[in-house]
Structures are given as structure tokens and as C-alpha cells.
Design a protein around this nucleic acid. Structure first.
Lengths: 120, 120
DNA sequence: ACATCGTTTCGTATTTTTCCGAAATTTCAA
DNA sequence: TTGAAATTTCGGAAAAATACGAAACGATGT
């Protein structure tokens, strides 16, 4: 049973009341991605993405799946209506559509290729 | 046309990612109240309520209606789906149900009586 | 074992938020 | 016009959030 107390809901809202974290959430609505892919698509330092994901995970929006040295993140399944609404709103942001348009290219390259071009 | 850009949505989420502001929002889902009634029901200093309402107004959640020296606040009509979902989630908080149970008594007294017992 | 790559944690300077009493403001009423 | 009541604004100290490079960590391949 998901917690819906004031404290919990405020934590969820705080997690998402942040430009980068909201963009990450919207991006993941398009499907699972590896952390390095998120950093590449968003053009943001990996440590910032990692911290954003930590908060989203704490609040229960996303889950991770480790595979070797990669960490794949995706939306946590079956959420409360509020979380669903937040995720949907994030996915519909114009800025996220913009971000999302860069995903196919990044996916096409494959994870290793993407991550190796991180630091030029 | 309501703005749905990243910046705006983040402002809306920040406005509501706060215990007192979320409680106020949920309380107003039960109908219009005067500022002094909100302060009385929530047992919180009037200046805190005023500041909470300022943020909620900035973000477009509530509107005010001045009547003499009283200010009545209520939910802004016809919102974006996200705002609707946030308001609904606030209204369904257990803590807000608790708050709401104190409304009839306060309403019964009438605005002047309520506000005059603010500072004993 | 070593170097490397993806990721997380840490350090931390900077900014933002929070909270509430005091003071200011506005409105009504005597 | 004076006083009182409802609300807002102000002050400012304390707590929290932000951002990102540097360092640490863990897994892989040679």
C-alpha cells in the first residue's frame, strides 16, 4: 500500500519540483535508459544526473537495474494517481519533447559508444 | 491558455511542495474560506497563512475575493490537469481530512467571531 | 594486477527557503 | 478622527537546497 501521508506527498513533490529532475522523469517516460544516455541526452554532468536519480528513486518515481558497470533506470511501475499525473505532466513538457527527440540517435549508437564520448 | 513550460510547472510544484501550503490547498478544496478561518482551523500564525496564500496565488492555485476587511480565498477555476491532480491529492490527505473536520464549527461561528478569538 | 570506464559520493561555496514576531497597511465603526 | 480588527509586508537568523569538480568506488578486460 503506497503511503499518502502529508510528509510523503511533500517529499514526492519536492523531488519533482526541480528542472533537471522533472526533465529526467519526463525522459524516462519514453522508456528505460542508462545513466550515461541520460547525461548525454540532457548535456549535463554525470554527477548531477546521478544525484537527480537518487532523489527520484528515494521518492519512488524510478527504479534501477544494474547490468555490469551500467545502471539502467526506468519508471517504477504501478504508482499512486498523483505520481502518474506528475509523470504524465513531465512527459508532456515541451522541453522534454525536445530532449526526447535526441534519444533515438543516442540509442542507435549503443551504450558504450555514448558513454565513451562523454569526456572529450 | 495555461502555460505548461518547464519553468512554470516547476514553480507550481514548488508552491505545493510544502506542508502548510499543501494543507491550505486541500482545505480550500472544501470551499471558500476567509483567511482568519484558515488560520484558526490550521492553528497557525496569520502571517504564515498569508505567505502560504501568496505563493499559492502566484502559482495560480487560488484566487482571492476581498469583502471589507476580510479576504476570502478559494480554488482558482478551470485548471490544467496537473493542477487538478495536485488539488485532488491535497484534498485526500488524511491530515487535511482532520483539518476539514474543524471547518463546520468555525463556519458556524461566522467570520467576525472566529477572527476575534485569534489573539487571546 | 593494472588501467579504464560508468557511476556515486564528497566537499563546499553559494543561493534559496523557511518561520514567525514586529511593524505597516487598509478598512470599518464609533 | 481615533481605535481596533484583518491582513500583508518586513527583518533576519537558521535550515535546506543547489551545482559541479574531485575523489572514491565497483566492475571489466587485458
Amino acid at each position: 500500500m503506497p503511503d499518502r501521508s502529508l510528509k510523503t506527498v511533500v517529499e514526492q513533490l519536492k523531488a519533482v519540483a526541480h528542472p533537471l529532475r522533472l526533465r529526467v522523469l519526463g525522459l524516462l517516460a519514453g522508456g528505460e535508459l542508462c545513466v550515461c544516455q541520460v547525461a548525454e541526452v540532457l548535456q549535463v554532468p554525470a554527477s548531477s544526473v546521478s544525484e537527480a536519480l537518487r532523489e527520484l528513486r528515494r521518492a519512488g518515481f524510478v527504479v534501477e537495474r544494474k547490468e555490469g558497470r551500467w545502471v539502467h533506470v526506468s519508471l517504477a511501475p504501478s504508482q499512486t494517481p498523483l505520481v502518474e499525473a506528475l509523470t504524465l505532466a513531465a512527459a508532456e513538457l515541451p522541453e522534454v519533447a525536445e530532449d526526447r527527440s535526441r534519444v533515438p540517435a543516442v540509442r542507435g549508437l549503443g551504450v558504450p559508444a555514448v558513454c565513451q564520448k562523454q569526456q572529450p
